[in-house]
Amino acid sequence: MGQELPADVLQHALTKAGVHPGDEVIVPSYGTSEVVQAVRQAGGLPVYVDIAPDTFCIDPGAVEAALTPRTSAIVPVHQFGHRADMARLSELADSRGLLLVPHAVQRSSSAETAVRQANAAFLTQRLNDVITPRVQPGAEHAFLQYVVRVPGNGRPDRDAFARTLRAKGVRCQVPVQTPVHRMPPFRRDVWLPETERAADECLSLPVEAGMSRRELQRVASSCNALGGLLQPA
């Protein structure tokens, strides 16, 4: 599985790109704190913006709305293996003279990525009662995590769904428990509705390259068996 690069590597990239102390740097809150730590280490001021609900990546429209004369850079994150909308972000950065410094990941081999993509396609074809990942036209998705939305009443239903799956022996995890802007060391008083909704609804299901079709079918069957229990209010 690919892993996000450490904060000090991103901090070096930001400094080398030209981020100066006091500069505003636009970042997503949905994800790990690594990006915010790197911005702070570079002397920048993190500005949180919302995500696009279908990709979980930073929303270019939200980025544009957050720009001020003090903005110097944008840090997109290719969330869960889905590439951010780099075409729109590049156009926006170029038009405003901003730095664009993507948070890269350590990539897996192409063979492993292809297997994960095939496993993800297998689940997508068979899952009935969760909202499966969407891949934007022309975008790349390496499926470092296979993240679904559990319909219902948000966090309580998602957590109940996860507990039941684990009881059935299905490994699953909440990909983002707390958005960065609500973590005490990085707290900001901002309202990011799509970020909050994703934190309440999302669940990561296993699609590792070593999984057999039987194991994948067990994941799908276990999820589908819960469909009648958790429905939107």
Rank of each mutant, 00 (worst) to 15 (best):
Q11T: 03
R96G: 07
P185N: 04
S95K: 04
L205D: 03
M1I: 04
A120C: 03
G169I: 12
R166L: 11
V207Y: 05
Q117M: 03
D200W: 11
K16M: 07
F186T: 09
G210K: 04
R171M: 12
G152V: 11
V207W: 02
S109Y: 12
L203G: 05
S212A: 07
V174E: 02
G227H: 12
E34M: 09
V39E: 15
Q3A: 10
V176T: 12
P156Y: 06
G2D: 15
A199Q: 06
Q3R: 15
A42C: 04
A104L: 15
S221I: 00
V39S: 13
H12S: 00
V147S: 12
T55V: 00
L192T: 09
D129G: 14
L5P: 02
A114Y: 11
A160F: 07
T71Q: 08
H103S: 13
G154L: 08
L230D: 08
V135M: 09
G97H: 07
V19E: 07
L230N: 01
E64N: 10
A52Y: 11
D8I: 01
Y48G: 03
V77M: 10
A42N: 08
N119V: 03
T124P: 07
P151I: 04
E215S: 15
Q3G: 13
N128F: 02
V190N: 05
L67H: 08
T32E: 10
I26H: 03
R158T: 13
A139Q: 14
V101A: 02
V105M: 11
L10R: 07
R126I: 04
D8V: 05
A114D: 14
E4C: 02
R163Y: 10
E196T: 13
S204C: 06
P151K: 02
S29R: 08
Q231W: 09
R187P: 09
R149E: 11
G44W: 01
V219W: 01
A73F: 06
Q106Y: 12
V147R: 13
H181T: 01
V190A: 11
T124I: 12
P175A: 00
G18M: 01
P76R: 04
L45P: 05
D59Y: 05
Q145L: 09
A225W: 10
T113C: 03
M211V: 12
E194V: 14
E201H: 13
A17Q: 06
E91L: 13
A142L: 07
T195H: 07
M211R: 00
L203N: 01
S110P: 03
P21H: 02
V25K: 05
E196M: 14
V47P: 07
R197C: 09
N119Y: 06
